Simulated assay, not measured.
Amino acid sequence: MRCSYFDAGTCRSCTHMGRPYGEQLAGKQLHCQTLLAGHTELEWLEPVASQESGFRNKAKMVIGGTAQNPTIGILDADGHGVDLRKCGVCSPGLRAVFPVLATYIRRLRLTPYDVPKRTGELKHVIITESPTGAVMLRLVLRSEQTLPRIRKHLADLLADLPQVKVVSVNLLPEHKAVLEGDREILLTEQSTLEMRVNDINLHLRPQSFFQTNTGMAAALYRQGREWVNELAPASVWDLYCGVGGFALHSAAPSRTVTGIETSSEAIVSARLSSDEAGLAGMEFQAGDATAFALAAERSPDLVIVNPPRRGIGKELCGWLESSDVQHVVYSSCNAQSLARDLAALPSFTARRARVLDMFPQTTHYEVMVLLERTA
């Protein structure tokens, strides 16, 4: 894949841009195998390739420039906006939204936030596209000052972008390097974006996490389902369950599945998906994964963990070591923290691993490992 922004030095976010894709994928496989080289009984499955371009279902863009000439993209070293509305890793559906959104910003005179001066209102836009082409649009604002204007002209935006089904405003009053704040104001009657993944309808609320590559997310959940069904556990915990992707794919007759996630919004979404699918034996709770495990009276047969980049940590590793859990399916977006966690689980043997290229054109990837208790 070639990118004019990368070639011009305008954006270097995709550090592998321009490298042959086969070389990228082989490099990620080698990197992961090297980190886990001490696990000599590990069987490496073929890595799962992504499409090279247009794979991102989510765009997290900084709004810069002026209300009359807004940029949609990133900031340069001086804090000024750089326009990336033709970014090739974004899906065609996302790219179709950007020019209409720029027109909307001009029409409503939404002043972009000026980072060096700490003035202005519109900080970011976060846009997510479902496999059906439906879109969720979130506007990250400094305050509620422009909210009445946005509400007044919302119908115009929806007329120009009929694929947009969910719109919300997120408030981020602080001047700090984060993407969004805690408070979300829903502006549309529809509150969730339906994401059809394999045979499951997942529901995303505005602040819910979902993988940025729908095709790879589907492959991830299929691999998890395959390993779980092969082992046929009677009970499963999905820790860090998000909107329930692994948990819902693990459902089966006579099997209990419990999903734990800190985000209460994600839990609402997971329950909705489970109810719609008529799945039995499913339970979802909002809470901390480690605290839940430590407080539980009994352990399940199998645990799925899909933690953030920091990994599951010493405390949860210690609980797994002392528990009766027989198998762990570990999905990681950071092979370094994965390697550290596996070293803290000497009672388990890593049996199988698979790299899934969730993030083409970058050094990042997802890896899944199946662990079996052997001590």
Rank of each mutant, 00 (worst) to 15 (best):
A270K: 09
A270P: 15
A270N: 11
A270F: 11
R271D: 14
L272K: 15
S273M: 05
S273Q: 04
D275Y: 06
D275T: 15
D275E: 13
E276L: 15
E276G: 12
E276C: 14
E276N: 13
A277G: 12
A277W: 00
G278A: 05
G278D: 00
G278V: 01
G278Q: 02
L279C: 04
L279S: 01
L279Y: 05
L279M: 14
A280W: 00
A280M: 04
G281V: 00
M282I: 07
M282Y: 05
M282R: 04
M282K: 10
M282A: 11
F284E: 13
F284I: 01
F284L: 10
Q285W: 10
Q285Y: 11
A286C: 10
G287N: 01
G287D: 02
D288M: 05
D288Q: 04
D288Y: 03
D288E: 04
A289T: 00
A289E: 00
A289W: 01
T290K: 06
T290C: 15
A291H: 09
F292V: 06
F292I: 06
A293Q: 08
A293C: 13
A293M: 07
A293T: 10
A293Y: 00
L294R: 03
L294I: 01
L294S: 03
A295P: 05
A296G: 00
A296S: 13
A296C: 09
A296Y: 00
A296F: 02
E297F: 05
E297P: 11
E297C: 11
E297A: 15
E297D: 14
R298D: 13
R298V: 15
R298T: 14
R298H: 13
R298Q: 15
S299C: 09
S299E: 09
P300Q: 07
D301A: 09
D301Q: 15
D301Y: 03
L302H: 07
V303W: 04
V303C: 10
V303D: 10
V303Y: 04
V303G: 14
I304W: 01
V305R: 09
N306V: 03
N306I: 06
N306M: 08
N306L: 07
P307F: 02
P307D: 07
P307L: 01
P307V: 05
P307T: 01
P308S: 12
R310M: 11
R310D: 13
R310C: 13
R310A: 14
R310E: 12
G311R: 00
I312E: 08
I312P: 06
I312A: 10
